[in-house]
Design a protein around this nucleic acid. Structure first.
Lengths: 235, 235
DNA sequence: GCCCAAAATTGATCTGGGTCAACTGGCTTT
DNA sequence: AAAGCCAGTTGACCCAGATCAATTTTGGGC
């Protein structure tokens, strides 16, 4: 784990890569110029922790680049990854004043960080921004429920197939549609996301490859038979 | 499944039992009087479906009385209960325009039903209400993540102990604190909530009773040894 | 009260995925 | 290029919880 590099540099929202897909899509050009002064760019090195569960939440984060793992730990060390955050995702919403999960960078990550208080004041008289945030929360809630079904009621093979397809789906806005699916997270991360062990994930990947559904490539997979993968994921 | 009885009766928000715990807590007395005209009381008989996944969402619901099960089905019939709704809970938020889970009454249920459009217009210029709704969504999101940990990483005994404790917790605002915990839902419901089978739930209840942690009583359980239950749930 | 159906419990057995352990193959370091 | 080190894979075995199959209990209707 390398030391973190935090760069404070002038950042222009209008040039931002995630402008349009994140919370900021709710803002018009003039608001955006004010908004600019609220955010501060920050970089996180691979494996660096951005915030931890139970930490006082002092900031909101907009992911600009890279992938983060969001997880909760049980006292004995068992881990459940509750999601992966990609560019455009907005983190830090909570009601208790504390984060309710931990987040760390998988590869290098860049975020736009907003101090809680000024951000709160900015929202105060901009209900359209609040509506946008609400929209994001409701979308996440829907995803969370889908994931509950996966965790509670699906077999290992269904879990892996579903994960690969939905991950591919999430990468479309970033890389365009492709059957080559980059998997920046480790097998252990995938296991902890799907409620499996690393061995079962590995075996299931191998099985899917043997069955001609995927090809395991360096840093990801190639989806050879999307239709069959869909069938495995649906049933 | 008896036929539904829908009663449209004059209902007064100020006298409402859940006034203060639901969305409406964000409204002042004068707003409440206007709000009154938006809602319509409806009753649902035991086992009756309030709405189904993929239905066009035309209403929001405020649970007034009774308990609902919220669930998703896989094509082959496997079911995952994603939550139970109690008085004060607000249902119907979504972004797709369709419900993303099904909901049915467990016992008799009374709700306050709001047509989507007028409710949306009412929120429009009342950001404090929107903030309240956002708060509820974020709280649910946090609960959903806790439940993911349970589904993905906990043993059967831990699941059941955790469920009993958190259900007891949820009943406090309704019945006051008590070691007697009413369980209006069936064993099958509990199983589908915890990602287990009905047999495993039944066996685990029996084991907890044999161990002196709970006593199984009619329509629920009595928590004999809360400390031990906490220990089972935490580890 | 008695009857019937549904819900819950209990027992016997099976199995998907976990556990434990060994091995492989890239990378990095020197 | 040798050594060391992880991340990932594979194999052998095991067990928590699923499945299958009876009971037993509960509750509602008459």
């Amino acid at each position: 784990m390398k030391p973190s590099v935090v760069t404070i540099e002038p950042s222009f929202c209008k040039d931002c890569s995630i402008r349009g897909s994140s919370v900021c899509s709710a803002l018009d050009a003039s608001e955006l110029r004010q908004f600019e002064h609220l955010g501060r760019r920050a970089q996180f090195a691979p494996c660096e922790t951005v915030f931890s569960e139970e930490d006082i939440a002092t900031s909101y984060f907009n992911v600009l680049d890279g992938v983060m793992r969001l997880y909760k730990l049980l006292p004995d060390g068992r881990r459940q990854i509750v999601g992966f955050a990609l560019p455009g995702d907005f983190l830090g919403m909570n009601i208790s004043g504390r984060h309710n999960f931990s987040a760390d960078a998988i590869g290098a990550v860049a975020v736009c960080q907003f101090a809680k208080a000024p951000f709160g004041r900015f929202i105060e008289d901009r209900p359209h921004l609040l509506r946008r945030i609400n929209e994001l929360a409701i979308r996440e809630l829907s995803q969370a429920r889908d994931h509950m079904v996966l965790l509670g009621r699906r077999s290992a093979e269904e879990k892996v197939a579903t994960f690969l397809l939905s991950w591919r789906e999430r990468l479309i806005p970033l890389h365009g549609p492709s059957n080559t699916v980059a998997l920046p997270m480790s097998r252990q991360d995938i296991a902890d996301y799907l409620g499996l062990t690393i061995e079962t994930v590995s075996r299931t990947f191998t099985k899917l490859e043997r069955d001609g559904v995927i090809e395991i490539i360096h840093g990801g997979i190639s989806l050879l038979d999307p239709a069959r993968a869909e069938a495995l994921a649906a049933a």
